[in-house]
Amino acid sequence: MKEKFTRWDAVDHLHSETEQTAYLNACLEDDPGDGSLVRAALGDIARARGMSSVARATGISREGLYRALSSDGNPEFATVMRVMRALGVNLRAA
């Protein structure tokens, strides 16, 4: 009997703002220091909320956001801040 596997996608589990916040906080805690995990989490949350609407809110093309927030993307800090603002995410120092 062959086993059938499907690709796991975080977006399938990010239905509420509470789930999205918990996910982003976990990624912030576990990020290896290069921002890759946080970048991926922002991309997942943007996809969960609708990449087109996030793109409109940031003024960045949908394709540009997918590229910037991809696993091999390297967005400018200004882009990350625009995405965070569009998602309603606040960055605070503690």
Rank of each mutant, 00 (worst) to 15 (best):
L28P: 08
E17T: 11
Q20F: 11
V11R: 08
R39A: 03
D9E: 13
W8E: 13
W8G: 03
V11I: 12
P32S: 05
L28A: 15
D9I: 12
G35N: 08
R39S: 01
L37I: 01
T18Y: 00
L24W: 00
E29C: 06
S16C: 10
S36T: 12
A10Y: 15
L37P: 02
A22I: 13
P32T: 01
A10M: 13
W8K: 13
D34G: 13
D31M: 00
L28Q: 13
E17Y: 13
H13P: 03
E29V: 04
D31Y: 07
D9G: 03
W8C: 07
A26H: 09
L24Y: 00
D34W: 04
H13M: 09
C27Y: 05
W8S: 09
V38G: 06
V11H: 02
D30K: 15
V38E: 05
A10H: 10
D12G: 02
L24K: 01
L28M: 09
W8M: 07
D9S: 15
E29D: 10
A22Y: 10
T21D: 09
T21S: 14
S36Q: 07
T18C: 01
N25L: 05
V38R: 07
D30Q: 15
H15I: 06
A22P: 03
G33C: 04
T18G: 13
A10I: 11
A22G: 08
E17N: 10
D34V: 04
A22H: 09
T18K: 08
L24T: 01
T21G: 06
G35K: 09
D31L: 07
T21V: 01
D12F: 01
L37G: 00
L14N: 12
V38I: 15
S16A: 03
S16M: 14
S16L: 10
W8N: 07
D12C: 04
S36F: 06
P32F: 05
E19F: 05
D9K: 12
E17Q: 13
D9Y: 06
A26V: 08
G35D: 11
D31N: 03
S16Y: 05
G33E: 04
H15P: 01
A40K: 14
S16Q: 12
A22E: 15
N25V: 01
E19M: 07
W8F: 15
L14C: 10
L24G: 03
C27W: 05
D30H: 03
D31Q: 11
D34Y: 10
D30T: 05
G33L: 08
N25T: 07
D31V: 01
E29W: 00
W8T: 14
E29A: 15
S16I: 07
L14Y: 05
E19P: 04
C27M: 15
G33N: 05
V38M: 08
G35S: 07
H13V: 03
A22N: 06
Y23C: 00
V38F: 07
H15F: 13
T18H: 10
L24P: 03
A22V: 13
L14K: 05
D34R: 04
C27K: 15
R39H: 00
L24A: 10
A26W: 02
A40Y: 08
P32Q: 11
S16W: 08
A40L: 13
G33P: 09
A26M: 10
D9F: 04
T21Y: 04
L28S: 11
D30S: 11
T18R: 14
D30M: 02
T21F: 06
L14M: 05
Q20S: 14
L28H: 08
P32E: 08
A10Q: 14
D31G: 06
H13T: 02
T21I: 03
A10G: 00
L14A: 08
G35Q: 03
